[in-house]
């Protein structure tokens, strides 16, 4: 464990807490893409298949359970909680996200570390996570205005993978046989997808104005 990875995990956890706070405090999920949340639930379930077979550390197991439980809880809330589901922007959240699932799985069948079920699902989860934010970014472009909590949620979600890139650089420099090309390349793509959002987020923060995304 290094400081970059810890910062990344904490930022990731923070993004989920901010989203839970928004949904719980405002009893609303307006501006949140349910499709992105469903993709994250798939990412965590597919990535943590080794939850009961490989024990790395208490921290690792605890965080895996938190990520799986929180992502499923958010999807459940957005689908079945009577008040929350009413505020879902159904007509704006129209990204055909099942294409992302299919493409990621197809890529995982071609590019993986080992041709085993667990490794293929791991690679699948890495590729899917890189593109999972797309429905959310499309929804924001369509709705134009971003409320504070949603903006913070997306900012932390993007920042966590940026910390992971520093972690991979650090591990590459300090650990002789460390290579994680799949995660690394995918992580760079993932962070790059947030680039324009980061740009507008920074501008709005600098001008202390409300975050507006160009339609």
């Amino acid at each position: 464990m290094n400081i970059f990875r810890l910062a990344g995990d904490m930022t990731h956890l923070l993004s989920i807490l901010v989203l839970l706070l928004k949904i719980y405090a405002t009893k609303s999920c307006s501006g949140i893409s349910r499709k992105t949340q469903e993709l994250y639930a798939i990412v965590f379930v597919a990535r943590y298949l080794d939850l009961f077979t490989d024990f790395i550390s208490v921290y690792n197991t605890f965080m895996k359970v938190v990520f799986i439980a929180s992502s499923l809880a958010i999807v459940w809330c957005m689908r079945f909680h009577p008040m929350v589901r009413r505020s879902y922007d159904r007509e704006l959240d129209t990204f055909r996200h099942y294409f992302l699932v299919g493409a990621s799985f197809a890529l995982a069948l071609i590019l993986h570390e080992k041709f085993t079920v667990q490794e293929i699902f791991w690679a699948f989860s890495i590729y899917l996570e890189a593109v999972a934010i797309l429905p959310q970014l499309v929804l924001l472009q369509r709705s134009g205005n971003v409320d504070n909590l949603t903006g913070q949620y997306i900012f932390f979600l993007g920042a966590y993978r940026a910390f992971y890139i520093l972690n991979w650089i650090y591990r590459y420099l300090t650990e002789p046989h460390f290579t994680r090309w799949i995660a690394c390349v995918s992580g760079v793509v993932q962070t790059a997808l947030y680039a324009d959002f980061f740009y507008y987020y920074f501008i709005s923060w600098k001008n202390n104005s409300k975050l507006k995304l160009p339609a």
Binding site: D50, I56, N60, K64, H177, A183
Partner: peptide, 10 residues
């Protein structure tokens, strides 16, 4: 042996 390190990252 180039044992693929188990995935110790989240």
């Amino acid at each position: 042996a180039d044992v693929v390190a188990e995935h110790d990252e989240l």
